[in-house]
Every structure is written in C-alpha cells, then in structure tokens.
C-alpha cells in the first residue's frame, strides 16, 4: 500500500485513537507527582522531604517489598528468556529443517498456548503442580521447609512453557528464507556440523533469535495470569504486587513505580532499535 491522499476523517480518528492509547500513560506519570496520598484527585505537585517532587520515587526505593518484587520479576524474566530462546530455537530448527515422527503433533502442541485462554493453561499448571507436590511430599516424607512448594521455580518453568511457542514462531519465520547452500558451502570448506552452526547458521539467524528473546522477555515481564496461579510466598512479581495494592490502598508509589517501568522499557526498546538499525 502506498501513501496517497487521505481523508481528513481518517487522520482525525487516527489522532483520537493515539490520544486514547496515550491518555492513561500520561495520567499515570502525572499522578506520580501528586501531593495527595489517596491519589484520587490531583492536588498539586508533591514537595516533601529531601527528594522534593520525587518524594514517591524515594519512598518507593525504601520499600523492600517493591524491590523484592522487582528483583523477582527480573530474575524470572532473564532465566525464562534465556532458556526459552534456546529451546525455542532448537524447536524452530527441528520443525523447519527436519522430518520426524511426531512433527505434526509438535506443531499442534505449539499452537495450543496461542489459541487457548491463558487462564486455562494457568489453572492446568496449578492443578498439576499441586498434585505433583502433594504426591512427592507424602511419598518422600518431606515436611516443613523441606517440602516442595510453589515459588520462583514453578513461575520460571511456566514462563518458559508459554514463551517457547512465540520464540519458535519468530525464529521459524527467520529460518524460512534461509539459504541452505551457505551451510553446504561451510561444510564443503572443511567445517564440521558444529563449526558450521557456530560460524554460519547461528550468526545468520541471530537477529531472529534476538527478537524472539525480546518477545519472550516482554511476555514474561508483563505476565499476570500464569504467574498468579504458579506463584508462592517469596516469589511475588511486580504485576502481582501492584494487583495486591489495588485491592487495598493505592498510593502514588505505584505511579512512581509505573513511571520508572515505562521509562526503563522505553530506554531498553530505544537501544535495541538503535542496535537493529545499525546492522
């Protein structure tokens, strides 16, 4: 489609929709500087303590719960991204390059997480882990803190599960146009299978793996439903923490947190776009 003269109505509605998309974010950021603790009406810019208008930001950083949640969120996101990027890339290679007995079944299984509601997968995993842990703890007579229970481990394992299909999808798209004669050329020139993968295949599909990993990272950071059903004491993530706050009293600390979140994500995305543009 090329650019042609547009009707002013299209432009106007586009502007309104952009406004709709950004209004909540602007509100969030503005209220991070609210002087009212109840955060219902904007009562002017806060100017309190050593931090002045950044009072809520300072308060946030002295809040151990928030810092723990942030640490958990990042730990989960990093580990699940790395693991799912590796497994997903392997799956993409298998599905794009090879013929094997369970191929169609594997492809179907990889589509399921995309076409069923997340809550179905979430409670499935919950049912599975609680049954597994109950059985395991009673069979091996584990008691007290030694018992297996929901926690960081279950969240990470579950995040990997829903990230794999997305990584596979992205990497497969990249592999789709891959010129196999490049690999043959490498082998012809004396590289064995491993060296061929390291020196030729991987560098060429790396951008695909990277965007797959970025997608997995975003999904993990943003995930609420699966985390909600697989989390346990001590593995609260930021989305779960904010959800908990919403049910009690919400102070502008949450807005400060959101502001930092948005800015961090924007910086990360900006840098990655820059890197992408350079290659």
């Amino acid at each position: 489609m090329s650019s042609t003269k547009r009707s002013p109505w299209i432009t106007l509605s586009a502007l309104l929709i952009y406004f709709f998309l950004y209004a909540p974010i602007v509100v969030l950021i503005v209220f991070a500087f609210n002087s009212s603790k109840t955060n219902i009406v904007f009562e002017g810019v806060v100017n309190q303590g050593a931090c002045g208008p950044f009072y809520w930001f300072c308060k946030l950083f002295s809040n151990d719960d928030v810092l723990d949640a942030a640490k958990n969120t990042l730990t989960i996101a990093f580990i699940s991204t790395i693991v799912s990027a590796i497994i997903g890339t392997m799956a993409a290679l298998a599905l794009q390059r090879y013929d094997f007995p369970v191929k169609r079944a594997s492809e179907a299984a990889l589509y399921i997480p995309i076409v069923i509601p997340e809550i179905v997968m979430g409670i499935g995993i919950l049912v599975f882990f609680s049954a597994l842990f109950t059985w395991f703890n009673s069979t091996f007579g584990l008691v007290g803190d030694g018992r297996l229970a929901m926690g960081l481990g279950t969240v990470i394992v579950s995040h990997i599960a829903f990230s794999i299909p997305f990584v596979t999808l992205v990497v497969r798209a990249r592999l789709h146009g891959f010129d196999k004669s490049l690999e043959e050329a490498a082998m012809d020139l004396g590289a064995n299978e491993f060296t061929t993968f390291r020196r030729v295949t991987f560098p060429l599909i790396a951008p695909g793996v990277l965007s797959g990993a970025l997608l997995a990272f975003t999904l993990s950071l943003d995930d609420f439903i699966i985390t909600f059903f697989t989390t346990g004491p001590g593995s609260t993530t930021l989305p779960i923490y904010v959800y908990g706050l919403l049910r009690r009293i919400v102070t502008p600390e949450v807005n400060a947190l959101s502001t930092i979140w948005i800015l961090t994500v924007l910086i990360v995305v900006f840098i990655s776009q820059r890197l992408e543009a350079r290659r």
Partner: peptide
C-alpha cells in the same frame, strides 16, 4: 565421508558467499 573431509571443493550456483 562427510563433505568437510573430502578433498574437493564446490562453487555454488548462487555463489553461497557468507553475507555476514
């Protein structure tokens, strides 16, 4: 014998030069 152990080399139709 796999290709990387054979004393022959190939020039491909599409050249297959490594783009990276």
């Amino acid at each position: 014998t796999p290709p990387f152990q054979r004393p022959v080399n190939t020039v491909f139709q599409n050249y297959a030069l490594f783009p990276h």
